[in-house]
Design a protein around this nucleic acid. Structure first.
Length: 153
DNA sequence: GCCAACGTTGGC
DNA sequence: GCCAACGTTGGC
């Protein structure tokens, strides 16, 4: 099983929104970056654990844990003509964008970005690297264990 | 609102 | 294939 960190703007989808969703599950639509897409399409498996990260907000940081609830399938919003995620180059026969479903596991205390940065064990965490903008990044098992510890601290 | 960093696009 | 221009991300 692999571990992931997925960013979401809480104004769009927060950990509370995920907890309140039907079946506590939300399709992770709208990703329009190839590397992030590839992680979902090629590497994510049902049951993989996800650190739910709030970004572009007053208190950026890890706000909860989720898991992959469904393998990647074509992102419906790419076909939504007029929608903000519409992609004119995508076709049903050759979809460009894929998403997994993400299922709520639990809230955590807010582990702030500054706290993550201050933790020596997380020095190579992808999301903390300079200039990183990827909304989906892998988390090594040791890094995940380190963050679990921070969550409980 | 600012701005650094990065990905994508499109002309050549 | 190069690279300038542009758009987006995301912390501050």
């Amino acid at each position: 099983m692999r571990h992931w960190l997925m960013k979401s703007e809480p104004a769009e989808v927060s950990i509370d929104d995920l907890a309140a969703a039907p079946e506590k599950t939300i399709p992770w639509f709208g990703v329009r970056n190839y590397q992030a897409r590839n992680y979902m399409r090629d590497d994510m498996r049902v049951g993989d654990l996800v650190l739910f990260y709030h970004s572009s907000c007053a208190e950026p940081g890890i706000a909860g844990v989720a898991r992959v609830g469904r393998l990647a399938y074509p992102d419906a919003t790419q076909f939504d003509r007029g929608g903000k995620y519409f992609d004119p180059k995508a076709t049903a026969a050759a979809p460009r964008w894929f998403n997994v479903d993400v299922t709520f596991v639990r809230r955590t205390r807010l582990v702030a970005l500054a706290e993550l940065r201050a933790e020596p064990g997380l020095a190579s965490l992808t999301v903390l690297q300079r200039g990183n903008r990827l909304s989906i990044t892998p988390v090594a098992p040791e890094e995940y264990a380190c963050i679990e510890k921070l969550i409980r601290a």
